[in-house]
Design a protein around this nucleic acid. Sequence first.
DNA 1: TAATAAAGTTAGGTTAGTCTAAAATAATAA
DNA 2: TTATTATTTTAGACTAACCTAACTTTATTA
Lengths: 219, 219
Amino acid sequence: MILSQTEENYLKALFHLTNRNGEQAEVGTNELASFLNVKPASVNDMLKRLREKELVENERYGKIFLTNSGQKIAVQIVRKHRLWETFLYKKLSFSWDEVHEVAEQLEHINSPKLIEQLEKFLDYPEFDPHGDAIPNAKGEIKLQKRTTLSEVELGKSCKLIAVKDSNADFLQYVLKVGLELGSKIKVLNRQEFDGSLEIEIKKNVLSVSQKFADNVFVE
Amino acid sequence: MILSQTEENYLKALFHLTNRNGEQAEVGTNELASFLNVKPASVNDMLKRLREKELVENERYGKIFLTNSGQKIAVQIVRKHRLWETFLYKKLSFSWDEVHEVAEQLEHINSPKLIEQLEKFLDYPEFDPHGDAIPNAKGEIKLQKRTTLSEVELGKSCKLIAVKDSNADFLQYVLKVGLELGSKIKVLNRQEFDGSLEIEIKKNVLSVSQKFADNVFVE
DNA sequence: TAATAAAGTTAGGTTAGTCTAAAATAATAA
DNA sequence: TTATTATTTTAGACTAACCTAACTTTATTA
Ligand SMILES: [Mn+2]
Ligand SMILES: [Mn+2]
Ligand SMILES: [Mn+2]
Ligand SMILES: [Mn+2]
């Protein structure tokens, strides 16, 4: 089945919204619309078409789900996205805050051979530059049990294993505070009124906002 | 200026049709339409929009030209196309008949850094896998004075320097008869009634059609 | 439970890019 | 020079993807 870029983006968005950190989540028209920066009415139009192609299922006023074939297609797009990010990062000297935007375009290139060969060229990488697992050709993903930094208990140490990839400013800031994939983080204190954290990284103590901590994944 | 893929394809088509083997050529609505596999009416609509963006010039019932800025954009697309073909060929083990189709998609990816870095990664190649010159970042192209094999005088020898890139079957056939970029070809005889040629390649004598010879460029 | 708010849907409209069918102009041949 | 053919343009229509404004249904709260 040949899909437009727009259709692919809807499927990918649904994939991300329905699988939040391993858990299943319910998704409605409004949420999908604001995620994609379109209006709920547009989402409705598109859902009609995706339903006709049997890629999504939803009842009137009900929640939205990917069908099996919708899910398969979405995973392949995620696979392409993460392989391209890895290529840009490893081979073309992009920084980790620059790769996502370009991968958003490259993920829609349609050529099975290209992806096969790209994966081989990169020597079958398991994770992208932000720590997200790259699905294999069959669509299987290693699922990492990951927590956000916000949820870590006071006094405990953890290891940074992934970061939200879609905000360049955030990613630059992560590097600036001295963090990278694999960094050890100790949570010293939590400010109750705004959820901000005091953390220790390589003997340095600093304070990060709740929002920051929500975008950092640890194990 | 942000252009759609379709607009980019019109500009590229005009670039190719108005610069045939170094010479300037006049292009009309019908010719552009059949090149792009659309109807003349569609071309008319698009020309109106491209005129408004000052990328093409044409008078009612007159021939079509790229403006300077239209030309610049077209060359950049050709540059991207040829760099991607080179990448696929050199780094991802694509054969020379497979690269064009995928490059048709990749040429529309919009990221100046990507192209810069790709060119660097490929070590500033001068020619694509079909022997076409790759424009540099400034849009300058080395112009090769090239003739088609059909035009070579009887008895003369020549060197294969480029081939038309858009037909995979033709490209496979070129390899099959033992030719590649740089091959020496001697033209032994010309059949007047159908323009077919008898040629010698590495002591082998074979006959090729006029159409074949039209798609092979030599110096 | 009734009122209000939030979420979702429908109707009608826009733009890009395409098409067919018909009309206008230019080029060519009788 | 007129008739025929080829080329180009116009008018009107379609689909994908979006929008606004109004409406309906579901959820929340008083
Ligand atoms: Mn990404
Ligand atoms: Mn995308
Ligand atoms: Mn090509
Ligand atoms: Mn193209």
